[in-house]
Design a protein around this nucleic acid. Structure first.
Lengths: 146, 146
DNA sequence: CTCCTGTGGTAAACGGCCTTTACCGCGACA
DNA sequence: TGTCGCGGTAAAGGCCGTTTACCACAGGAG
Protein backbone atom coordinates (compact mmCIF):
# COMPACT_ATOMS: atom_id res chain seq x y z
CA UNK A 1 0.00 0.00 0.00
CA UNK A 2 1.40 3.38 -0.94
CA UNK A 3 1.30 6.52 1.09
CA UNK A 4 -1.37 8.20 -1.02
CA UNK A 5 -4.23 5.89 -0.15
CA UNK A 6 -2.99 5.38 3.39
CA UNK A 7 -3.57 9.05 4.06
CA UNK A 8 -6.52 9.74 1.80
CA UNK A 9 -8.94 7.10 2.97
CA UNK A 10 -8.75 7.81 6.71
CA UNK A 11 -8.90 11.55 6.06
CA UNK A 12 -12.03 11.08 3.97
CA UNK A 13 -13.59 8.85 6.59
CA UNK A 14 -13.02 11.45 9.30
CA UNK A 15 -14.42 14.19 7.10
CA UNK A 16 -17.60 12.27 6.40
CA UNK A 17 -18.11 11.30 9.96
CA UNK A 18 -17.73 14.90 11.09
CA UNK A 19 -20.43 16.05 8.72
CA UNK A 20 -22.73 13.16 9.58
CA UNK A 21 -22.49 13.74 13.31
CA UNK A 22 -22.83 17.50 12.99
CA UNK A 23 -25.95 17.06 10.90
CA UNK A 24 -27.68 14.87 13.45
CA UNK A 25 -26.38 17.03 16.30
CA UNK A 26 -28.29 20.18 15.46
CA UNK A 27 -26.13 21.62 12.69
CA UNK A 28 -28.01 20.44 9.66
CA UNK A 29 -26.79 23.11 7.25
CA UNK A 30 -23.11 22.24 7.53
CA UNK A 31 -21.63 20.49 4.53
CA UNK A 32 -18.30 18.94 3.72
CA UNK A 33 -16.64 22.11 2.50
CA UNK A 34 -17.63 24.10 5.58
CA UNK A 35 -15.36 21.94 7.71
CA UNK A 36 -12.37 23.52 6.02
CA UNK A 37 -13.40 26.84 7.54
CA UNK A 38 -14.24 25.62 11.01
CA UNK A 39 -11.30 23.33 11.54
CA UNK A 40 -8.47 23.99 13.91
CA UNK A 41 -7.46 26.59 14.89
CA UNK A 42 -10.80 28.13 13.99
CA UNK A 43 -11.68 31.22 11.96
CA UNK A 44 -12.42 33.69 14.74
CA UNK A 45 -10.60 36.94 14.17
CA UNK A 46 -8.94 35.71 10.98
CA UNK A 47 -8.98 37.36 7.55
CA UNK A 48 -10.78 35.62 4.68
CA UNK A 49 -7.60 35.51 2.64
CA UNK A 50 -5.72 33.80 5.43
CA UNK A 51 -8.46 31.21 5.76
CA UNK A 52 -8.29 30.55 2.03
CA UNK A 53 -4.59 29.98 2.22
CA UNK A 54 -4.99 27.65 5.18
CA UNK A 55 -7.61 25.61 3.38
CA UNK A 56 -5.63 25.57 0.14
CA UNK A 57 -8.41 27.12 -1.93
CA UNK A 58 -8.85 30.48 -3.67
CA UNK A 59 -9.99 33.60 -1.87
CA UNK A 60 -13.16 33.55 -3.94
CA UNK A 61 -14.03 30.00 -3.01
CA UNK A 62 -13.47 30.83 0.65
CA UNK A 63 -15.66 33.86 0.24
CA UNK A 64 -18.51 31.73 -1.02
CA UNK A 65 -18.15 29.43 1.95
CA UNK A 66 -18.12 32.41 4.29
CA UNK A 67 -21.19 33.84 2.61
CA UNK A 68 -23.00 30.55 3.06
CA UNK A 69 -21.92 30.27 6.69
CA UNK A 70 -22.96 33.84 7.31
CA UNK A 71 -26.35 33.12 5.78
CA UNK A 72 -26.83 30.21 8.18
CA UNK A 73 -25.81 32.33 11.14
CA UNK A 74 -22.52 30.68 11.97
CA UNK A 75 -20.25 33.66 11.40
CA UNK A 76 -20.34 37.32 10.53
CA UNK A 77 -17.80 39.40 8.72
CA UNK A 78 -16.66 42.56 10.45
CA UNK A 79 -14.20 45.27 9.49
CA UNK A 80 -10.71 44.55 10.65
CA UNK A 81 -9.70 46.85 13.50
CA UNK A 82 -6.26 47.59 12.14
CA UNK A 83 -6.24 47.60 8.35
CA UNK A 84 -8.82 49.69 6.49
CA UNK A 85 -10.77 47.80 3.86
CA UNK A 86 -9.83 44.46 5.40
CA UNK A 87 -12.34 42.22 7.16
CA UNK A 88 -12.17 39.57 9.83
CA UNK A 89 -14.42 36.61 10.48
CA UNK A 90 -16.24 36.48 13.81
CA UNK A 91 -17.93 33.35 15.12
CA UNK A 92 -21.48 33.81 16.34
CA UNK A 93 -22.80 31.89 19.33
CA UNK A 94 -24.02 29.19 16.95
CA UNK A 95 -20.66 29.17 15.21
CA UNK A 96 -18.86 28.69 18.49
CA UNK A 97 -21.21 25.82 19.33
CA UNK A 98 -20.49 24.13 16.00
CA UNK A 99 -16.78 24.60 16.42
CA UNK A 100 -16.94 23.10 19.90
CA UNK A 101 -18.94 20.17 18.52
CA UNK A 102 -16.31 19.57 15.87
CA UNK A 103 -13.60 19.48 18.49
CA UNK A 104 -15.70 17.05 20.50
CA UNK A 105 -16.15 14.71 17.58
CA UNK A 106 -12.48 14.84 16.72
CA UNK A 107 -11.58 14.02 20.30
CA UNK A 108 -13.99 11.09 20.17
CA UNK A 109 -12.25 9.85 17.06
CA UNK A 110 -8.87 10.27 18.67
CA UNK A 111 -10.06 8.29 21.67
CA UNK A 112 -11.24 5.47 19.45
CA UNK A 113 -8.05 5.36 17.48
CA UNK A 114 -6.07 5.49 20.64
CA UNK A 115 -8.01 2.51 21.97
CA UNK A 116 -7.45 0.62 18.75
CA UNK A 117 -3.75 1.29 18.34
CA UNK A 118 -2.82 1.70 21.95
CA UNK A 119 -2.10 5.11 23.39
CA UNK A 120 1.61 4.88 22.85
CA UNK A 121 1.36 4.02 19.18
CA UNK A 122 -1.34 6.58 18.61
CA UNK A 123 0.81 9.31 20.12
CA UNK A 124 3.59 8.18 17.85
CA UNK A 125 1.32 8.43 14.82
CA UNK A 126 0.36 11.98 15.69
CA UNK A 127 3.94 12.92 16.34
CA UNK A 128 5.05 11.56 12.96
CA UNK A 129 2.23 13.30 11.12
CA UNK A 130 3.15 16.48 12.95
CA UNK A 131 6.71 16.14 11.73
CA UNK A 132 5.51 15.76 8.16
CA UNK A 133 3.25 18.75 8.66
CA UNK A 134 6.06 20.99 9.78
CA UNK A 135 8.44 19.89 7.09
CA UNK A 136 8.55 21.76 3.79
CA UNK A 137 7.23 18.65 2.03
CA UNK A 138 3.62 19.64 2.29
CA UNK A 139 3.45 23.40 1.99
CA UNK A 140 5.25 23.31 -1.30
CA UNK A 141 2.64 21.15 -2.98
CA UNK A 142 -0.27 22.93 -1.38
CA UNK A 143 0.43 26.37 -2.80
CA UNK A 144 -2.10 27.59 -5.31
CA UNK A 145 -0.86 28.85 -8.64
CA UNK A 146 -2.01 32.50 -8.96
CA UNK B 1 -3.22 19.93 16.18
CA UNK B 2 -5.99 17.38 15.84
CA UNK B 3 -5.96 14.27 13.74
CA UNK B 4 -8.32 15.63 11.09
CA UNK B 5 -6.04 18.28 9.69
CA UNK B 6 -2.95 16.18 10.23
CA UNK B 7 -4.29 13.67 7.74
CA UNK B 8 -6.20 15.92 5.40
CA UNK B 9 -3.54 18.41 4.47
CA UNK B 10 -0.83 15.93 3.48
CA UNK B 11 -3.35 13.83 1.59
CA UNK B 12 -4.48 16.87 -0.35
CA UNK B 13 -0.92 17.90 -1.06
CA UNK B 14 -0.11 14.47 -2.47
CA UNK B 15 -3.24 14.50 -4.60
CA UNK B 16 -2.43 17.85 -6.12
CA UNK B 17 1.14 16.97 -6.79
CA UNK B 18 0.10 13.77 -8.54
CA UNK B 19 -2.17 15.65 -10.91
CA UNK B 20 0.37 18.41 -11.51
CA UNK B 21 3.15 15.98 -12.37
CA UNK B 22 0.92 13.80 -14.51
CA UNK B 23 -0.22 16.83 -16.48
CA UNK B 24 3.29 17.94 -17.33
CA UNK B 25 4.36 14.35 -17.92
CA UNK B 26 2.21 13.67 -20.95
CA UNK B 27 -1.12 12.94 -19.34
CA UNK B 28 -2.81 16.29 -19.68
CA UNK B 29 -6.40 15.03 -19.54
CA UNK B 30 -6.14 13.52 -16.09
CA UNK B 31 -7.92 15.43 -13.36
CA UNK B 32 -8.17 15.12 -9.62
CA UNK B 33 -11.06 12.72 -9.60
CA UNK B 34 -9.42 10.32 -12.04
CA UNK B 35 -6.77 9.49 -9.50
CA UNK B 36 -9.38 7.68 -7.44
CA UNK B 37 -9.73 5.21 -10.31
CA UNK B 38 -6.08 4.74 -11.08
CA UNK B 39 -4.77 4.43 -7.57
CA UNK B 40 -3.47 1.30 -6.01
CA UNK B 41 -4.15 -1.51 -6.70
CA UNK B 42 -5.34 -0.31 -10.08
CA UNK B 43 -8.57 -0.89 -11.98
CA UNK B 44 -7.46 -3.58 -14.42
CA UNK B 45 -9.90 -6.47 -14.45
CA UNK B 46 -12.11 -4.90 -11.77
CA UNK B 47 -15.86 -4.26 -11.93
CA UNK B 48 -17.12 -0.66 -11.97
CA UNK B 49 -19.13 -1.26 -8.83
CA UNK B 50 -16.10 -2.52 -6.96
CA UNK B 51 -14.13 0.54 -8.01
CA UNK B 52 -16.92 2.77 -6.76
CA UNK B 53 -16.88 1.07 -3.41
CA UNK B 54 -13.11 1.36 -3.19
CA UNK B 55 -13.23 5.06 -3.96
CA UNK B 56 -16.13 5.66 -1.61
CA UNK B 57 -18.37 7.16 -4.30
CA UNK B 58 -21.57 6.02 -6.00
CA UNK B 59 -21.59 3.60 -8.91
CA UNK B 60 -22.95 6.37 -11.10
CA UNK B 61 -20.16 8.77 -10.24
CA UNK B 62 -17.62 6.07 -10.94
CA UNK B 63 -19.31 5.38 -14.23
CA UNK B 64 -18.91 8.97 -15.28
CA UNK B 65 -15.23 8.84 -14.43
CA UNK B 66 -14.86 5.62 -16.41
CA UNK B 67 -16.67 7.15 -19.35
CA UNK B 68 -14.34 10.09 -19.30
CA UNK B 69 -11.26 7.88 -18.99
CA UNK B 70 -12.52 5.71 -21.82
CA UNK B 71 -13.02 8.80 -23.97
CA UNK B 72 -9.41 9.79 -23.37
CA UNK B 73 -8.15 6.32 -24.20
CA UNK B 74 -6.97 5.25 -20.79
CA UNK B 75 -9.32 2.33 -20.29
CA UNK B 76 -11.97 0.33 -22.03
CA UNK B 77 -14.93 -1.52 -20.60
CA UNK B 78 -15.30 -5.15 -21.59
CA UNK B 79 -17.84 -7.78 -20.73
CA UNK B 80 -16.89 -9.77 -17.68
CA UNK B 81 -15.85 -13.30 -18.61
CA UNK B 82 -17.78 -14.96 -15.81
CA UNK B 83 -20.95 -13.06 -15.00
CA UNK B 84 -23.31 -12.12 -17.83
CA UNK B 85 -24.31 -8.47 -17.93
CA UNK B 86 -21.34 -7.54 -15.80
CA UNK B 87 -18.38 -5.56 -17.13
CA UNK B 88 -14.75 -5.21 -16.21
CA UNK B 89 -12.36 -2.33 -16.72
CA UNK B 90 -9.28 -2.95 -18.85
CA UNK B 91 -6.32 -0.59 -18.94
CA UNK B 92 -5.11 0.36 -22.39
CA UNK B 93 -1.43 0.86 -23.13
CA UNK B 94 -1.83 4.54 -22.30
CA UNK B 95 -3.68 3.65 -19.13
CA UNK B 96 -0.90 1.35 -18.03
CA UNK B 97 1.63 4.10 -18.72
CA UNK B 98 -0.36 6.54 -16.59
CA UNK B 99 -0.70 4.03 -13.79
CA UNK B 100 3.03 3.38 -13.88
CA UNK B 101 3.66 7.11 -13.77
CA UNK B 102 1.47 7.46 -10.71
CA UNK B 103 3.39 4.73 -8.93
CA UNK B 104 6.62 6.48 -9.88
CA UNK B 105 5.46 9.77 -8.45
CA UNK B 106 4.25 8.14 -5.26
CA UNK B 107 7.57 6.41 -4.86
CA UNK B 108 9.31 9.75 -5.34
CA UNK B 109 7.17 11.21 -2.61
CA UNK B 110 7.90 8.30 -0.33
CA UNK B 111 11.61 8.76 -0.94
CA UNK B 112 11.39 12.43 -0.04
CA UNK B 113 9.42 11.79 3.10
CA UNK B 114 11.78 9.04 4.04
CA UNK B 115 14.71 11.41 3.64
CA UNK B 116 12.96 14.02 5.74
CA UNK B 117 11.84 11.78 8.58
CA UNK B 118 14.54 9.18 8.41
CA UNK B 119 13.84 5.75 6.96
CA UNK B 120 13.07 4.20 10.31
CA UNK B 121 10.48 6.79 11.31
CA UNK B 122 8.94 6.78 7.85
CA UNK B 123 8.50 3.03 7.96
CA UNK B 124 6.88 3.45 11.35
CA UNK B 125 4.48 6.02 9.95
CA UNK B 126 3.42 3.70 7.16
CA UNK B 127 3.04 0.83 9.55
CA UNK B 128 0.81 2.85 11.87
CA UNK B 129 -1.33 4.11 9.01
CA UNK B 130 -1.60 0.55 7.79
CA UNK B 131 -2.86 -0.51 11.20
CA UNK B 132 -5.50 2.20 11.12
CA UNK B 133 -6.43 1.12 7.62
CA UNK B 134 -7.01 -2.45 8.60
CA UNK B 135 -8.95 -1.60 11.72
CA UNK B 136 -12.73 -1.29 11.55
CA UNK B 137 -12.41 2.43 12.37
CA UNK B 138 -12.27 3.53 8.80
CA UNK B 139 -14.53 1.24 6.82
CA UNK B 140 -17.45 2.03 9.04
CA UNK B 141 -17.38 5.74 8.28
CA UNK B 142 -16.64 5.27 4.63
CA UNK B 143 -19.76 3.34 3.73
CA UNK B 144 -22.19 5.18 1.49
CA UNK B 145 -25.81 5.40 2.57
CA UNK B 146 -27.95 3.81 -0.21
C1' DC C 1 -43.78 -21.03 -17.68
C1' DT C 2 -44.39 -16.72 -15.35
C1' DC C 3 -43.71 -13.58 -11.95
C1' DC C 4 -40.73 -11.49 -8.75
C1' DT C 5 -36.62 -10.15 -6.70
C1' DG C 6 -31.73 -9.13 -6.40
C1' DT C 7 -27.58 -7.80 -8.80
C1' DG C 8 -24.82 -5.02 -11.96
C1' DG C 9 -24.79 -1.45 -15.06
C1' DT C 10 -26.36 2.86 -17.25
C1' DA C 11 -28.57 7.53 -18.19
C1' DA C 12 -30.25 12.30 -17.16
C1' DA C 13 -31.15 16.10 -14.03
C1' DC C 14 -29.58 18.64 -10.44
C1' DG C 15 -26.65 20.91 -6.91
C1' DG C 16 -22.39 21.91 -4.55
C1' DC C 17 -17.97 23.62 -4.83
C1' DC C 18 -13.93 25.38 -7.02
C1' DT C 19 -11.52 28.15 -10.65
C1' DT C 20 -11.11 31.82 -13.88
C1' DT C 21 -11.82 36.37 -15.13
C1' DA C 22 -13.00 40.71 -13.83
C1' DC C 23 -13.83 44.64 -10.96
C1' DC C 24 -13.94 47.93 -6.70
C1' DG C 25 -11.87 50.61 -2.75
C1' DC C 26 -8.10 52.12 -0.41
C1' DG C 27 -3.38 53.42 1.01
C1' DA C 28 1.48 54.14 -0.44
C1' DC C 29 4.49 56.33 -3.05
C1' DA C 30 6.91 58.44 -6.72
C1' DT D 1 -2.15 62.73 -9.81
C1' DG D 2 -1.21 58.55 -11.71
C1' DT D 3 -0.43 53.77 -10.71
C1' DC D 4 0.84 50.01 -8.08
C1' DG D 5 -0.25 46.56 -4.63
C1' DC D 6 -3.30 44.56 -1.35
C1' DG D 7 -7.68 42.81 0.36
C1' DG D 8 -12.02 41.77 -0.82
C1' DT D 9 -15.98 40.88 -3.93
C1' DA D 10 -18.93 39.34 -7.96
C1' DA D 11 -20.37 36.46 -11.98
C1' DA D 12 -19.70 32.75 -15.29
C1' DG D 13 -18.31 28.35 -16.16
C1' DG D 14 -16.79 23.61 -15.33
C1' DC D 15 -15.91 19.57 -12.64
C1' DC D 16 -17.75 16.18 -9.82
C1' DG D 17 -20.91 13.70 -7.00
C1' DT D 18 -25.77 12.57 -5.65
C1' DT D 19 -30.52 11.55 -6.63
C1' DT D 20 -33.87 9.41 -9.30
C1' DA D 21 -34.92 6.44 -12.69
C1' DC D 22 -34.52 2.69 -15.91
C1' DC D 23 -32.76 -1.66 -18.35
C1' DA D 24 -30.91 -6.51 -18.66
C1' DC D 25 -30.29 -10.74 -16.81
C1' DA D 26 -30.22 -14.85 -13.53
C1' DG D 27 -32.38 -17.61 -10.00
C1' DG D 28 -36.11 -19.04 -7.46
C1' DA D 29 -41.21 -19.31 -5.95
C1' DG D 30 -45.50 -20.14 -7.27
Amino acid sequence: MLIGALLRVPAQAIHRRLVAELNVGGFEELRLAHIAVLQYPGPDGVRPGTLAERAGISKQAMNQLLGSLEGCGYIRRADAPDAPGARVVRLTRRGRAAYAKILDILRDIEREWSAELGPRRFAQLKELLGAVWESPLIRQSNIRSP
